[in-house]
């Protein structure tokens, strides 16, 4: 699923400033919703989008280590300028959405994001 479609589905804003043409260049194959970075480090796969309500610099560091391409902060959480600058430096797109975690995950799952990967794990 293209990041531009994810942004539209979640009525999200690109805090790192990419326009829709740039976001349409990024293809995401699965997503992970978690406020536990330890779990993200243990289980997340490639080509992922991280959905989280946790807002600190370690979210960006964790994404960097996991080669996570984009992060979406849920339930209206606003990243600080420091967090956005670090994400830009690492080439990670940051989205923000007003939707809570449950709704965010549901909207993306309903559009088949990660459904195939989930089925392969079972």
């Amino acid at each position: 699923m293209l990041l531009s479609e994810i942004k539209a589905t979640l009525h999200a804003v690109a805090a790192t400033g990419e326009d829709d043409a740039q976001l349409s260049q990024v293809d995401i194959s699965t997503a992970c919703g978690s406020d536990l970075l330890s779990d993200v480090l243990a289980f997340v796969k490639d080509q992922s989008l991280l959905l989280t309500g946790l807002v600190n610099a370690q979210v960006i560091r964790t994404a960097e280590m996991m080669d996570i391409m984009a992060i979406c902060f849920v339930r209206g959480k606003e990243p600080t300028d420091e967090i956005i600058d670090l994400a830009r430096e690492k080439g990670i797109t940051v989205l923000t959405t007003e939707h809570p975690m449950y709704v965010t995950c549901g909207k993306l799952y309903a559009k088949d994001l990660g459904v195939r990967a989930d089925a392969q794990d079972l």
Partner: peptide
């Protein structure tokens, strides 16, 4: 509260 301390660190390193 920062997202760590779930007791996954050392097992994850081993993995």
């Amino acid at each position: 509260e920062m997202g760590f301390g779930a007791g996954m660190g050392l097992p994850n390193i081993k993995k």
